[in-house]
Simulated scan of single mutants.
Amino acid sequence: MAPGPDTLLVVRTSMTQGRHGGLAAALGILIGCTGWGIATAVGLTALLTASHLAYDTLRVCGAAYLVRLGITALRHSGKSAEPEPTDRRRQRTATIPPGRFAAFRAGVGTNLLNPKAGVFYMSLIPQFVPHGAPVFSTTLLFTAVDLAELAAWYWLLSGAASALGERIQRPAFRRRLDRITGVAFFGFAAGLLADRT
């Protein structure tokens, strides 16, 4: 639940595309977490700490992806200069499903291309596996618990962010939101590149 690229993505998507868009991004993030949980269960995430090359490769790819999201947000901020008429806004909301799929893809990407997420699963979950318990099934059980908590958190977060987004329909606010999130994605990318774990 700590603020990071995943949380920022859910908030921004919920405010700009509504709750369904935010939940689509959250679903992508949960799919990514599931992937990290399965990788932990079979021991693949140990590769991230054992191999600097694997960690650095994933870190650079993740930073590049966050830069891409930042550029997309900044480009979008320039497109919302004119207020849309109400009937055009209604037409646009009828075509949200492709936006939802893009939000879902972005959620999967921000999570799976973040080596810190893999290290989190690998370092935290094994500590709670009881001695003598089957590692694979117990790790998957703890992953499921984490997914349930994250799903509840993102459900609340997307609801609050979309309610705020509906109240603030001004194009100037949307432009500022896109600029802030674009710069924040650049910041997360820089932090990921600076991380030498």
Results as ranks from 00 to 15, higher is better:
165 G>I: 09
126 P>F: 02
81 A>E: 15
115 P>Y: 01
103 A>R: 03
35 G>S: 09
38 I>D: 01
119 V>C: 06
53 L>G: 08
38 I>Q: 03
164 L>Q: 10
104 F>G: 01
55 Y>F: 08
99 G>C: 06
83 P>H: 03
86 T>R: 11
61 C>L: 15
64 A>F: 02
89 R>C: 04
109 G>W: 00
158 S>I: 13
51 S>M: 03
119 V>T: 15
104 F>R: 01
40 T>L: 09
129 V>H: 02
40 T>G: 12
60 V>F: 02
58 L>H: 09
110 T>N: 00
64 A>H: 05
108 V>I: 13
46 A>H: 13
52 H>L: 10
126 P>V: 13
73 A>G: 05
87 D>E: 14
36 W>Q: 04
73 A>W: 13
39 A>V: 12
130 P>H: 11
74 L>G: 00
56 D>L: 04
36 W>I: 01
106 A>F: 01
75 R>S: 06
100 R>P: 00
156 L>M: 14
144 A>H: 05
130 P>I: 02
155 W>L: 15
53 L>P: 00
70 G>V: 11
102 A>V: 14
113 L>P: 06
110 T>I: 13
154 Y>W: 09
138 T>Q: 05
37 G>Y: 02
117 A>Q: 10
84 E>C: 01
56 D>S: 12
42 V>L: 12
51 S>P: 05
71 I>C: 03
58 L>E: 10
147 L>C: 04
80 S>H: 14
158 S>V: 15
159 G>L: 05
137 S>I: 13
159 G>W: 07
142 F>L: 15
141 L>F: 08
32 G>M: 08
46 A>N: 12
160 A>C: 08
73 A>N: 12
32 G>V: 01
80 S>F: 11
108 V>Y: 02
151 A>R: 01
35 G>Q: 11
150 L>F: 04
146 D>V: 14
141 L>V: 09
94 A>P: 06
165 G>R: 02
86 T>A: 14
150 L>K: 12
48 L>Y: 12
91 Q>F: 11
77 S>C: 06
109 G>L: 10
45 T>D: 10
132 G>D: 08
117 A>N: 15
93 T>Y: 11
116 K>S: 12
116 K>E: 13
77 S>E: 05
92 R>D: 09
113 L>Y: 05
108 V>P: 04
37 G>R: 13
57 T>Q: 05
166 E>Y: 05
94 A>E: 15
97 P>S: 03
154 Y>V: 06
151 A>G: 07
156 L>R: 10
35 G>L: 13
122 M>C: 06
105 R>I: 13
42 V>W: 13
145 V>L: 15
44 L>I: 07
50 A>G: 15
157 L>R: 01
61 C>V: 14
151 A>F: 07
121 Y>N: 06
127 Q>R: 14
39 A>L: 13
112 L>E: 04
160 A>D: 08
148 A>L: 15
67 V>R: 11
159 G>H: 12
35 G>T: 03
89 R>I: 08
36 W>R: 02
41 A>W: 07
61 C>K: 08
50 A>P: 00
35 G>Y: 09
59 R>Q: 10
81 A>G: 12
84 E>P: 02
78 G>H: 09
96 I>K: 06
105 R>P: 03
70 G>I: 11
96 I>T: 10
100 R>N: 13
145 V>H: 03
102 A>Q: 13
37 G>F: 00
88 R>P: 01
164 L>N: 06
116 K>Q: 11
109 G>D: 00
139 T>I: 09
